[in-house]
């Protein structure tokens, strides 16, 4: 396992504003593992919502900012698979569409150092046992961007299996999309809700107390559905589970 890596945290705009605990958990976790965490304050948003809704110019402006802010770091971590996927998949396309070869080159270089949390832990830092303790029954939903965008595979599960006290239960039809889909959730609320209800029905069937994922955006949709159904299942980001230790709760 590697020591003393200086990691820049791209917390993402959604986590920054609505889920600060996820960002704090990443900081705590990485420091506990002996790494340095920096939070470049010039960061804002990757532009995912803009590009995916049909506003590539706005996204390109945010992409320029992102590459400037994070260009100098050895490794950048984001506790959001969909934001990392935006950087990896969409940035090269946006740069190509902008007709700026220098930007395209820079974007490709920077994108190569941006990791989802579980990629950073398993591939870069070389660990699956992060010394966490979380005495709860948990089921894991592989979000579409973790699964088909970043191909995270079983990395998150390997991390969860090493958490002491945690009982991991398998989610039926796990690979199915939850129905969030960014602006899809408000543009097509009926279908989004139908998909969300099917997903939480599977979640409830596992008997888990906690639904875990690598994207707070999907968890907002599922958590909102679970809460409306009074299902009694909490949604918790993977980072917060991995940051938990015996003395302090997540």
């Amino acid at each position: 396992m590697r020591r003393n890596v200086r990691v820049a945290l791209f917390v993402t705009c959604v986590n920054d504003t609505i889920f600060p605990d996820t960002g704090k958990a990443v900081v705590r976790l990485l420091r506990r593992l002996g790494h340095e965490v920096d939070f470049p304050e010039g960061q804002t948003c990757c532009g995912q919502m803009h590009v995916n809704t049909g506003y590539p110019e706005a996204a390109t402006a945010l992409m320029r900012r992102f590459t400037q802010v994070f260009g100098g770091y050895e490794a950048v971590v984001a506790p959001s698979a969909s934001c990392v996927a935006t950087v990896r998949e969409q940035y090269p396309r946006l740069a190509a569409a902008a007709g700026d070869p220098a930007l395209a080159e820079e974007v490709t270089r920077v994108a190569g150092k941006v990791y989802d949390l579980s990629e950073l832990l398993v591939d870069v830092l070389g660990t699956t046992d992060v010394g966490a303790y979380y005495p709860h029954t948990v089921t894991y939903h592989p979000t579409c961007h973790s699964l088909r965008g970043l191909h995270l595979g079983d990395r998150p599960l390997r991390l969860l299996r090493q958490v002491r006290g945690l009982r991991l239960v398998e989610l039926p039809e796990a690979a199915e999309c939850c129905g969030f889909g960014g602006t899809f959730a408000v543009k097509n609320p009926a279908v989004s809700t139908a998909m969300g209800i099917d997903k939480v029905t599977n979640v409830i069937s596992t008997g888990a107390e906690v639904l875990c994922a690598a994207d707070n955006s999907c968890l907002t949709h599922l958590g909102g559905t679970l809460s409306r159904l009074r299902a009694g299942v909490r949604t918790v980001h993977l980072a917060e589970i991995l940051a938990s230790v015996e003395s302090g709760a997540a």
Partner: peptide, 25 residues
Amino acid sequence: GPLGGWTDTRDLPPVPRESFRAWWR
């Protein structure tokens, strides 16, 4: 408005008192 498409079927997450950015500072 259009955002009612969300809240018709799903609860909103609570907005925290302090953003991550503010906490870091």
